[in-house]
Computed example of a mutant assay.
Amino acid sequence: MLKTNAGRFFEDYSIGDVIHHAVPRTVSGGERALYHALYPARHALYSSDEFARASGLPESPIDDLAAFHVVFGKSVPDISLNAVANLGYGEGRWLKPVYAGDTLRSRSEVIGLKQNSNGKTGVVYVRTSGLNQRDEVVMEFVRWVMVRKRDVDAPAPETVVPELKNVLEISDLIIPEGLDFSNYDTMLSGEPHRWSDYAIGETIDHVDGVTIEEAEHMMATRLWQNTAKVHFDATHRDDGQRLIYGGHIISMARALSFNGLANAQMIFGLNGGAHANPCFSGDTVRAWSEVLDKADTDAPGVGAIRLRLVAYKGDAAFETKGENGKYLPQVLLDLDYWALMPK
Results as ranks from 00 to 15, higher is better:
49 D>W: 11
275 H>Y: 02
231 H>Q: 06
314 G>L: 14
142 V>D: 02
341 M>V: 04
219 M>Q: 15
26 T>L: 01
62 I>S: 12
284 T>P: 09
283 D>G: 06
236 H>Q: 14
220 A>V: 10
49 D>T: 06
21 H>D: 09
144 W>K: 05
125 Y>A: 05
191 E>G: 14
242 R>H: 09
321 K>F: 12
249 I>K: 09
192 P>F: 00
181 F>P: 00
86 N>E: 02
31 E>S: 08
182 S>E: 14
208 D>I: 13
78 D>A: 13
279 C>P: 02
328 L>R: 09
222 R>D: 14
132 N>T: 03
44 A>T: 14
284 T>F: 03
325 G>E: 05
114 K>F: 08
262 A>Y: 10
15 I>K: 13
339 A>H: 13
276 A>T: 15
301 G>A: 10
49 D>K: 13
135 D>C: 12
299 A>R: 06
134 R>M: 11
98 V>H: 03
289 S>T: 03
35 Y>E: 00
152 V>P: 04
70 V>T: 15
230 V>A: 09
113 L>I: 02
178 G>H: 00
313 K>Y: 10
301 G>R: 01
90 G>V: 06
109 E>Y: 08
204 I>V: 03
319 E>N: 08
162 P>I: 06
33 A>R: 15
273 G>P: 05
49 D>H: 02
209 G>P: 04
295 A>D: 02
236 H>K: 11
277 N>I: 02
99 Y>R: 12
168 L>S: 01
183 N>P: 03
174 I>K: 15
114 K>G: 10
219 M>P: 08
3 K>L: 13
186 T>L: 07
242 R>E: 08
330 Q>F: 02
69 H>V: 12
92 G>T: 00
15 I>E: 05
66 A>D: 00
311 A>M: 01
261 L>S: 01
83 A>T: 07
60 S>E: 00
244 I>L: 11
96 K>R: 14
93 R>A: 14
332 L>R: 05
150 R>H: 13
183 N>H: 10
11 E>W: 01
321 K>E: 09
179 L>G: 06
13 Y>L: 14
334 D>I: 04
197 D>I: 11
336 D>A: 05
167 V>D: 09
254 R>C: 10
328 L>I: 04
197 D>Q: 14
189 S>D: 05
190 G>M: 08
314 G>M: 00
113 L>K: 08
200 I>N: 15
75 S>D: 08
180 D>Q: 12
7 G>E: 14
223 L>T: 08
206 H>Y: 02
231 H>I: 08
310 V>M: 05
3 K>S: 10
311 A>P: 02
122 G>V: 00
117 S>E: 11
38 L>C: 00
122 G>R: 04
278 P>H: 05
82 N>V: 03
221 T>F: 08
67 A>R: 04
214 E>F: 14
236 H>E: 13
53 R>L: 07
229 K>V: 15
222 R>C: 04
110 V>M: 07
265 Q>C: 04
78 D>R: 07
101 G>K: 11
321 K>P: 08
301 G>D: 07
177 E>H: 15
295 A>R: 07
307 L>N: 00
260 G>K: 06
190 G>W: 00
2 L>N: 11
64 D>H: 13
326 K>H: 06
130 G>W: 03
86 N>W: 04
